[in-house]
Amino acid sequence: MAFRPIATTRSATGMPTGRLAIWWLIVSEIVIFGGVLASYIMHRIGHPEWAYQAEHTNLVAGSVNTIVLLTSSLLAVLAHNAAEMGDGKKAAKLFVGTILGGLVFLVIKSFEWGNEIAHGYTITSSGFWAFYYTAAGIHGTHVLVGMIVMGFVAYDAWHGRELQRIEFAGIYWHFVDVVWIFLFPLLYIAS
């Protein structure tokens, strides 16, 4: 039997330690993203003139990315469903689809940012653009990290190992989706 750290086999709360850990991580993420979003909202209300700059964000790119992330979340929960039924190979395939969704999101985001920077809207242009690049940048970093983690988890799942991690990584991915659900109206609609 392979060695397993005691922390992964002991449960003081009555729930799997890994799932408790992922929720703990998400709480810390709420504080991080909550701070950024709360700061943005109060500044946006205090500076009505930011609306002139918000008009220049790309609603089409933001909309397509919203659909992409929602769909990738669907694939993640379907992977969880497959893992619950003990089908590691199907779960791994669905997770690869989730990873591809994240890749499409980042590619669209890179074109979007490239176009905006080419038009002179950089992180130092104004308070609005500083928040825009900071919030979307932190979010994009989380997308990238999620893709990498899901790659390792999918590899294990393909070999029938640690299927519970499909659920843990999925919970993280859904949270990243929820953050985007709020970023979308804040950055693209409220102009």
């Binding site: 002139y52 920077i117 002179g120 242009s125």
Partner: peptide, 8 residues
Amino acid sequence: GGHHEAAP
């Protein structure tokens, strides 16, 4: 309108 045609 805060728009920059070229990099400022």
